[in-house]
């Protein structure tokens, strides 16, 4: 944002004395407010696609980190918190009719033919914990099925990216950038899931609460964004 010229005008107008100084101060405040609005709008709404499309000519210098940062706290975390559907409900509906379940509880990007994706939450007892693998998982039983909760650091799949209706392939130039967005989301999900969690307490028999994203692919596998132990207040 070229700040110099914008501030030059009120500075010039302020040469005439106290009322003018007051007016110019007011002007500066207004200009700052406009700038702030532009900046916020710029980060959250407009440039997601613009930033991604700037380098059509050849070498994409897409910043997936920035793309995700603009959305993580403001939209992604609230979406997972507020829109998550009980995982048992989703699995039962999927067993009945995947397309009906998808239309009712899930999301499927228009640009592909991939499986339906769902934002889910649950509360279950840990049946098995695989914490030695870099692809660490907690297995829980939901509606008679084993569900793998991925807590990273390596997360498989693109369920989180694909479950968010405000992120689409059309916003980026190519599949590498789209994949970078997924990787960035998965890294943040893993970090968020593990924040404040004592991994040593994740043993079979412990009850945990979780929220995250999963696809309709079988067996069910959840990219965990929020993980809570009893009394941890998370």
């Amino acid at each position: 944002m070229p700040a110099g010229p914008t501030f030059a005008a009120p500075a010039g107008a302020g040469r005439g004395g106290a009322p003018h100084r007051l007016r110019s101060a007011l002007l500066a405040v207004i200009v700052l407010a406009v700038l702030a609005v532009l900046l916020v709008r710029g980060i959250t709404v407009v440039p997601d696609s613009e930033v991604a499309r700037t380098d059509l000519a050849g070498n994409p210098s897409f910043d997936a980190g920035r793309f995700v940062t603009a959305l993580w706290a403001s939209r992604i975390v609230p979406t997972v918190r507020d829109k998550a559907v009980d995982i048992g409900t989703v699995l039962a509906a999927l067993a009945q009719d995947p397309d009906k379940a998808g239309a009712q509880y899930g999301h499927r990007p228009k640009s592909g033919d991939g499986p339906w994706t769902f934002i889910v939450r649950g509360d279950a007892e840990i049946k098995a914990a695989e914490l030695q693998s870099r692809h660490a998982t907690l297995t829980v039983a939901v509606a008679g099925q084993d569900v793998a909760l991925q807590i990273g650091p390596v997360i498989f799949g693109t369920a989180l990216r694909d479950s968010l209706p405000f992120i689409s392939f059309e916003q980026v130039v190519n599949q590498i950038q789209f994949a970078q967005v997924s990787r960035e989301l998965n890294d943040r999900a893993s970090a968020a899931a593990r924040t404040g969690i004592d991994v040593a307490k994740l043993v079979p028999g412990t009850r945990i609460a979780f929220a995250g994203a999963m696809s309709a692919a079988s067996p069910p596998q959840v990219t965990v964004v929020q993980l809570g132990l009893p009394g941890a207040g998370k």
Partner: peptide, 9 residues
């Protein structure tokens, strides 16, 4: 009826 860019898994 589809976007230009389509990905198939």
């Amino acid at each position: 009826g589809k976007p230009e860019k389509q990905l198939v898994d």
